Amino acid sequence: MPRAAPKASAEPSSYEAALQELEQLIASVESGQLPLEQMLAGYQRAALLLNYCRSKLDAVQDQVKVLDEGALAPWNQE
Rank of each mutant, 00 (worst) to 15 (best):
Q44N: 12
A27T: 05
L48E: 15
P35D: 09
Q77L: 14
S13D: 05
Q24F: 08
A41K: 09
Q63P: 08
E69D: 13
P74N: 03
L67S: 08
L50I: 09
A41C: 03
M1I: 09
L19S: 08
D68L: 15
S9L: 12
A73T: 08
G42S: 06
Q44A: 12
K56T: 11
L40V: 12
S55N: 07
P2Y: 04
L72E: 10
L67M: 13
D62H: 08
A46H: 06
E78P: 10
L36N: 08
G42F: 05
L50E: 14
K65T: 09
K65G: 13
I26D: 08
D62G: 12
E37V: 04
Q63R: 14
L22W: 06
E37K: 03
V60H: 11
E30F: 03
A46S: 14
A8S: 10
A10E: 15
D68I: 14
G42V: 02
A18I: 01
P12A: 05
D58F: 05
G42C: 06
Q61A: 08
K7R: 13
K7T: 08
P12N: 02
V60T: 09
I26C: 04
N76A: 14
K65W: 07
S55G: 00
Q61I: 04
P35G: 00
E16Y: 08
K56H: 11
A18N: 00
A4G: 10
I26S: 06
A18H: 00
L48A: 15
L25Y: 00
K7H: 09
A17I: 03
E16S: 11
Y52H: 07
A59E: 10
Q24D: 10
Q77R: 15
S14R: 02
K7I: 08
V64I: 13
G32D: 00
L49C: 04
A8I: 04
Q44V: 10
A71S: 14
L34A: 00
A4M: 11
L72T: 13
L48S: 14
S9I: 12
Q77W: 13
P6G: 01
P6T: 04
L40K: 14
S28G: 01
K65L: 07
L19K: 10
Q33C: 04
P12Q: 01
E69Y: 12
A10K: 13
Y43C: 12
M39H: 10
